[in-house]
Nucleic acid binder design. Structure first.
Length: 480
RNA sequence: CGGGGCGUGGCUCAGACCGGUAGAGCGCACGGUUCGGGUCCGUGAGGUCGUGGGUUCAAAUCCCGCCGCCCCGACCA
């Protein structure tokens, strides 16, 4: 049960986040350092995320499968950049059944290698392509500094892995899935994102090109919320994924991979939450409407409950995820705070006065206090509620978008950039050299987040760091 | 792995400097009261004081070792 207040976001954003996750009962710390226990409320949220994404994956022609969690160490070593990128954070199994293993097995940090190995067995002809497989699962990366949902040693995600006959098709797939992520983030999570390309230093280990959706949290730090990689022939060569083309020539495939993890829950929390607690977008919320019946006496209870039960059934039949909080050992006021902590988008109060007047009280979570409270008729209540959920969803997106847009700046020189990234994002010309990128990082702790795919100016400019020629603009920001 | 801090009922902490055998608030259980914004009262359960050693008649308290956790710096969805 939620008790006591959170620190405000202003006071300590990080502490606000940590306590919110615990008090909203999304997750808890596990006995193993860096791992987390996802509690039922958090997992239901994840299930809703899964459904929304999975539907989109199926619509774009993908199918699900499951690959093993243990991968021979030698597989990781087949792709040079891949192993260099991941070796510091691998968990390795060296004993099985009490015997030392001949070859150590790594707990998958991601599955390009094992899937690449399997694809090499399955692909023979151009007729076998493309392969469009997704996997829902967990992976492990031995993180040094962890934070619930944002960075944990074990996390849950989906990873899509596709193989194609041509570079063009694989590149198209990479961007198609990035679009899917954007659509999901914006329309389901009400999380506005910027699609873009990662710099060489920020890209996935083993990729030719990494793309990302970047979201701005309320403290203005950036959160990489989903990634889609074009892997070229790197993994195809490492695992000999070859096919015979129409001209009877042997060719390597072009592969992609793309993933979105439980980190997205962190994005939702830090995009929408307020000082009262979590605010969930209606489309993903485990509970969309919580009903709080109000009565003093047995007589009032007898008058209120049948009406409340009837409304509950109506909403449920209409497909609304509704919860009746009929606990009698806590006061309504306590319940209000409790469900606000958990982020339920809409609260319905129903008491003796409402029964008398044929009304109910609705309180919007996104507008605290009197401002968000309204009294509506019990007539057509399902429709009223559904409309309000749509309104709340839209309002959350609008508010988050406005917040983000007002914190993206176009600094005129390097001095201003240094200022700007302390509390916002800088959208600036960059020559794409590692040196300039590193200088910004050293001076400000801000990194390049992505080169946006949209909103680029038509003509080239001068790098904000060195003044050299810059074809495109990049976002510099502090990141999670 | 470097710098700092902390380990005492489920949680937050007091007790330690000055050794004498453990307390508060919250939570939990039970009873009553209250209920349209975190009701109030009563009763009760619950602790090898992180761990191992040392000093002492006596250690939560003093000394030494170890373990664990948190925060700040180098890597990351």
């Amino acid at each position: 049960m939620a008790e006591e207040k959170l620190p405000t976001r202003e006071e300590n954003f990080s502490d606000w986040y940590n306590q919110l996750v615990l008090k909203a009962e999304l997750a808890d710390y596990s006995p193993v350092r860096g791992c987390m226990v996802v509690r039922p409320y958090g997992w239901t949220l994840w299930e809703n995320i899964q459904q929304a994404l999975d539907k989109r994956f199926k619509e774009t022609g993908h199918v699900n499968a499951a690959f093993p969690m243990l991968i021979p160490m030698s597989f990781l070593e087949k792709e040079k950049e891949h192993v260099e990128g991941f070796s510091p954070e691998l968990a390795v199994v060296t004993i099985g059944g009490g015997e030392k293993l001949e070859e150590p097995l790594v707990v998958r940090p991601t599955s390009e290698t094992i899937i690449g190995y399997m694809y090499s067995k399955w692909v023979k002809s151009w007729r076998d392509l493309p392969i469009l497989i997704n996997q829902w699962g967990n992976v492990m990366r031995w993180e040094l500094r962890t934070k619930l949902f944002l960075r944990t040693a074990e996390f849950y995600w989906q990873e899509g892995h596709t193989a194609h006959a041509t570079e063009a098709e694989a590149r198209e797939e990479t961007l198609r899935m990035l679009d899917v992520y954007e659509d999901f983030a914006v329309n389901e999570g009400a999380v506005p994102v910027i699609k873009g390309i990662k710099s060489e230093t920020e890209k996935f280990a083993g990729a030719v090109m990494s793309t990302t959706i970047e979201a701005m949290m309320q403290d203005t730090r950036a959160l990489q919320s989903g990634t889609s990689h074009y892997l070229g022939q790197n993994f195809a060569r490492a695992f000999e994924i070859q096919f015979t083309n129409r001209e009877n020539e042997l060719e390597y495939c072009y592969t992609t991979s793309w993933g979105l993890s439980t980190r997205f829950i962190g994005a939702i929390i830090m995009t929408h939450g307020d000082d009262q607690g979590l605010i969930l977008p209606p489309r993903l919320a485990p509970v969309q409407v919580v009903m709080v019946p109000i009565f003093k006496s047995e007589a009032e209870k007898a008058a209120v409950m049948p009406v409340a039960d009837r409304i509950f059934s109506e909403l449920k039949a209409a497909g609304v995820r509704v919860k009746m909080d009929d606990r009698e050992e806590v006061t309504p006021g306590f319940k209000f705070n409790d469900w606000e902590m958990r982020g339920v988008p809409l609260r319905m109060e129903i008491g003796p006065k409402d029964v008398e007047k044929g009304s109910v009280a609705l309180a919007r979570r996104d507008r605290p206090g009197r401002e968000g409270k309204s009294f509506v008729s019990q007539e057509n209540l399902s429709a009223t509620v559904q409309e309000m959920l749509v309104t709340i969803q839209a309002a959350l997106l609008e508010r988050a978008t406005a917040m983000r847009d007002s914190n993206i700046h176009n600094p005129k020189d390097y001095e201003e950039l240094k200022q700007v990234v302390q509390g916002g994002w800088a959208f600036s010309y960059w020559c794409e050299s590692k040196e300039c990128e590193a200088k910004v990082k050293e001076d400000t702790k801000a990194s390049t987040r992505c080169i946006p795919l949209e909103g680029q100016p038509e003509k080239a400019g001068e790098c904000i760091v060195c003044g050299g020629k810059a074809e495109r603009k990049v976002i510099f920001a502090k990141a999670y």
